[in-house]
Design a protein around this nucleic acid. Sequence first.
RNA 1: GGGUUGUUAGCUCAGUUGGUUCAGAGCAUCUGCCUUACAAGCAGAGGGUCGGCGGUUCGAAUCCGUCACAACCCACCA
Length: 902
Amino acid sequence: MNTLATKYDPHAVEDKWYEYWEQHELFKSVPDEREPYTIVIPPPNVTGVLHMGHMLNNTIQDILVRRARMEGKNALWVPGTDHASIATEAKVVKRLAEQGIKKRDLTREEFLKHAWAWTHEHGGVILQQLRKLGASCDWSRTAFTMDEVRSESVLRVFVDLYDKGYIYRGLRMVNWDPKAQTALSNEEVIYREEKSHLYYLKYYVEGLERLDDEEALRAQGNIIHHDERGYYAVVATTRPETIMGDTAMCINPKDPKNQWLHGRRVIVPLVGRVINVIEDRYVDIEFGTGCLKVTPAHDTNDYMLGKTHNLETIDIFNADATISEQSPLYVGMDRMACRKQIVVDLQQAGLMEKVEDYENKVGYSERNSDTAVEPRLCMQWFLKMKHFAELALPAVMNDELKFHPAKYKSTYKVWLEGIQDWCISRQLWWGHRIPAYFLPTRAGEEERFVVALTEAEALAKARQLPGFEQVQASDLRRDEDALDTWFSSWLWPISLFNGINDPGNAELTYYYPTSDLVTAPDIIFFWVARMIMAGYEYMGDMPFRNVYFTGIVRDKLGRKMSKSLGNSPDPLELIDRFGADGVRMGLMLAAPAGNDILYDDALCEQGRNFCNKIWNAFRLVKGWQVSDDAVQPAHSRVAVEWFDNVLRATMAEVKDHFSKFRLNDALMALYRLFWEDFSAWYLEIVKPGYQQPIDRATLNATLDYFDLLLRLLHPFMPFITEELWQHIAERGEGESIMHATIPAPQAADAALLAAMAQAKEVVAGVRSVRKSKNIAPRDLVTLQVVGEMNELCHDVIVKLAGLDSIDVVDAKDATAASFIVGTTEFAVPLKGNVDIAAERAKLEADLKYAEGFLASVEKKLANERFVANAPEAVVAGERKKQADAQSRIATLRAALAALDNQ
RNA sequence: GGGUUGUUAGCUCAGUUGGUUCAGAGCAUCUGCCUUACAAGCAGAGGGUCGGCGGUUCGAAUCCGUCACAACCCACCA
């Protein structure tokens, strides 16, 4: 009679419904009178592929947006991709290299042609993959950070911020990625602890043949080095290859060890350059020998020293970190090779005092993780951040804009309070080209430029400058640099609605501020904080009301998923194995807000099994024959009323979980509702006997419940719920569970829930007796109640426990196995098959526990201070416990006495 | 070096302002079942001195102190 397979097959379902949703434009949103609910996607790298982090992140977004849609809001999820300037350019460069083409042999235009080709070839793959996951994005709005609208927005903002005086150009020490050959922002540098060496180098003191007062100096604490070649200072360094750039040696003026070096000059080893010994309190007396070599061109601190002490700056590196012509030695050699060589040379020349093992932190490029970042002095564009930090801090601190979990507030605060100017220029081609135009100047003159949206405007601006009235377009030279990718991402919630180019437009007014942002905590500075800044600068309002920070997906051993470890499963393969619903559920079960999630295939299996459970419950209900003549049995009537209240209670719980972004708790509540309450209890109660029809009232109620359960589950498991929802009743073309409503929860009848909870315990008690006594399920037994019981669920117990009757008795049968629920004793007569010793042992154990419990309660009540200080309700609660315990003890004693009378 | 968070059952986690039998859930485990929706299943069962120590309180998984361990973030010690 059932034509449906016993196992749910996602393959037959998922693509079908996704196509249906798209075909009927069910993801589409246009402004109307309803309350908007908006999410903007964290745009993935346009040429990237879906990984587990995306799966988690986008599943959460889809759950939120689907739920909001079903709550009657006008829900919009805007998709898009990011051009990922440095990452994409690196990939294109690599591909060109494989074809034997060097980037520098190409013109900008030729290179961009290749980059766009690459983008079109790989671009959008990830958006197709999101469809497999079930993402309900409004695809008609798909944006790209480098499309026309977004590009214009970026340039406009650059011009605006320049005009406002927040953007400046300056010569600064920046983080340089020698592989990509571009500057990076501070946030793009990742520091890693590394095993290295501390080299102690000899810097001979110039022209010092004899120290007259050597003994006196030593007595004062000076540590003086001397060998056959003369007196020397010892400098500890981890980077001996930078000595060619040394322009001073520095000591702390208060360092007793090095007083003898005061005012002297020392000779840089191998190089032979004579440099001054300078003094600055910056130097740590305790570290190494207290002598610091100063290389202003290649270290941030040394650069600062160089500035205060007016030192010469010798840049010994080329852009690719090979040794430059400025160096007297090793020209053309790579920095790492140079380090090895110079160590050997120093040792051979007797200029190396010693070498120690050492651990230090080395900065790496976030995108070229094998490339150590080199501090480099160069001209870059910066954004002053103080103003933006002040804009962005208050709303988060006073919870107008909420972080979930809230612990990230302090991270955010600390960063904003210590914020440094943002280096926004990149020496890359793939990105938004900086709209600055340089004017022709003579050699040695200070550079002059204008900033403007278009070349025509730039020309007009230039001609207003004194001395440039006659300048021609062909004289203007546009800046070669591109902008940091995040300089476009930070506008995303605004630029998606064209809010920069067309301020105040209707869409923007309707959808902004967006509702929730779902993202990983590692981009809180890169992206989240900066979006908040841009939001207040350009909209005067927050970009989103809530930020939900997801955890990081790890393997079950807690290791971060990575390509090199090979511990990251392919998401599409997982979807193929477990179904999209199964995978979504597996991820959500393991993902409490803010906690890292330890991924295990077993979680997806659990999700898949749940799909199967739903599927089979549906098969059961669909297989029932209905008869209008059948009368609704009492147990079904109770079950229908009870389940209605369970639904109400659970819906309230789920709503509460959603309001706190506790999606895994919401899902778990629904999981248990469906599996335990609905399948194991409700359906078992109302299930008609073999080949018996079901009555109309019960069937209708059951179908209504099933429908509502599907709606509640739909945000988590969109495919199977749509499939079954379409089959559970007649639906019109274009109708979808996606737009069915999830009603607001109503108050539940607590007394009925409690009565059923007790009935469940009684049923479990009988089943336990059955199991221990090996009584087959089909053999009916009698249940005796010693005293009174709640009659509400009488028929339910009869049916589920397999009883012929429930007898209220004064004393139970001599040969019965008994159990206690609450304060009532229940017994199942066993027709002489009882193990009296075992019964006695069980009852005595129960009694002992109850007596102990009573004792603790009475001790509490005997304590005057407790009675005097505790709230009345608590004391009353203890009195109730006391009474219950006493009554239970009486029941147990009576039961034991009955046993003795055998 | 600074900051944040965590430590509850074999695993992953709940436990809201201290107080209902508060020590929970899911998974895993054990036992018995191919019972006419589902073995990707059904029924039953076991399992934790809430990281250690000390304190506050009538009462502490919950508040305070301290120690241990772990994770993450930030920071210019060569």
